[in-house]
């Protein structure tokens, strides 16, 4: 449960520094929105697609990751056909798909640890202003990863209990108890964090 979308690999894109990839993504999104010419957008789309499909994902995995987004883009494109000129629709589809492919490529080649190091750097100015502590962000992230399996197990237990008592399984009767039981742990978890000195200045 909750394994990252990172894919093991040794391609040049895997080895490229995370910061460079994120800056490239930002630059690409600005550049793609600056042009409307299919002559520029088509090569961009092909390059991003080529990059994404060369990262070691199987075709199936690769499509599964971007499938829903592509489907939405295509549905909206069909709607657009009735509303705006056809070359514009083509430009929009190519641009958005190129961007999505590049973004998916960054995700597939960057580990959570590497992302978090960049997040820590990005938070530095906020930290200097005293608005947030990077250590708190990684602690919160750790807590989520730690407790998702427990909360899911609790969800299944509540569902079982419903079944055992012959009560129909409705989201409402499950969500209420699930939230109460989970949030009630907050005090003990917070006490444990303080007792272990995790947030020492």
């Amino acid at each position: 449960m909750l394994t990252s979308l990172y894919v093991e690999g040794q391609t040049w894109f895997h080895r490229a520094p995370v910061r460079a990839k994120l800056i490239a993504l930002l630059a690409l999104s600005i550049a793609l929105f600056a042009t409307n010419s299919p002559l520029l957008l088509l090569p961009a789309f092909l390059l991003c697609g080529g990059l994404y499909f060369s990262l070691g994902l199987t075709l199936r995995q690769a499509f599964a990751r971007v499938g829903v987004v592509f489907f939405t883009i295509l549905v909206l494109a069909v709607v657009n056909l009735f509303l705006i000129p056809v070359p514009d629709v083509l430009a929009l589809v190519l641009r958005l798909m190129a961007l999505v492919l590049f973004a998916a490529a960054v995700t597939a080649t960057t580990t959570i640890g590497a992302f978090m190091d960049e997040v820590t750097v990005l938070l530095r100015p906020l930290e200097r202003l005293g608005l947030v502590r990077a250590a708190d962000v990684s602690l919160a992230l750790g807590l989520v990863l730690r407790f998702v399996p427990d909360i899911f197990a609790r969800y299944q237990a509540i569902r079982e209990a419903h079944r055992a008592r012959g009560v129909p399984i409705r989201p409402l009767t499950i969500i209420g108890p699930l939230i109460i039981l989970t949030l009630k742990d907050a005090d003990t978890i917070a006490a444990a964090i303080d007792a272990r000195g995790f947030r020492r200045q």
């Binding site: 909750l2 979308l5 958005l96 999505v100 597939a108």
Partner: peptide, 20 residues
């Protein structure tokens, strides 16, 4: 950061770059 936490196991920067 690439965790598939959205319903249907979706996640990653591609979703944020997409229409929704």
């Amino acid at each position: 950061i690439g965790l598939p936490v959205l319903s249907g196991g979706r996640g990653g920067l591609a979703i944020l770059a997409g229409p929704s």
